[in-house]
């Protein structure tokens, strides 16, 4: 309830100045961003409890302060090979609406860089190069210090299945 109220309240403001704070993180050297509004906290890596027969996009569970949170494999969803852990790897706990329910999930990033305020009207469509990732998961790109940062569409990114199929067929 509160989440809907909040987003309803945010909508007009976003329309006015179209500014948003983005959390920028890296995967395989590429810079990605999600809106900081959904970010709940950032944790050191934890080893998840493996859920048997789980979908590839969410293989396990972790305990975040007494709350059981599913771990989301963002690499799989984006069609990347599963990566190795780095000393700089972090888990981002993100609050999102999944299947009509507000819930938290955690995903691993190779490193978390910064929070950056961005004018969303400067969002550019993803250039050809970016098409290696499923288009539905991307909102666009912004240019930051001569680098392209890919803004992720968290609703599609964290959807339980649909996009998974797309990724699977692409992989095949």
């Amino acid at each position: 309830m509160t989440a809907t109220d909040q987003s309803a309240g945010d909508a007009p403001r976003a329309a006015q100045d179209n500014h948003d704070n983005l959390l920028i993180f890296r995967l395989e050297g590429e810079a990605f961003a999600v809106s900081v509004k959904g970010v709940h906290e950032i944790l050191d890596l934890q080893s998840p409890t493996v859920v048997p027969n789980a979908p590839a996009c969410s293989p396990g569970l972790i305990n975040v302060r007494g709350v059981v949170v599913p771990v989301f494999d963002i690499r799989h969803r984006l069609g990347m090979v599963s990566g190795t852990e780095h000393a700089s790897s972090r888990m981002i706990v993100f609050e999102n609406v999944i299947d009509g329910e507000t819930g938290r999930l955690a995903f691993t990033a190779d490193s978390v860089e910064e929070v950056h305020e961005t004018d969303l009207s400067s969002l550019e469509p993803i250039p050809e190069l970016g098409a290696i990732w499923p288009q539905a998961c991307l909102n666009g790109a912004i240019r930051l210090k001569d680098e392209l940062v890919v803004l992720l569409n968290t609703d599609a990114l964290f959807a339980p299945d649909s996009v998974d199929d797309v990724a699977a067929t692409r992989g095949a």
Partner: peptide, 8 residues
């Protein structure tokens, strides 16, 4: 369980 794992 979250929607990811509810149907297992």
């Amino acid at each position: 369980l979250s929607p990811y794992h509810r149907d297992i």
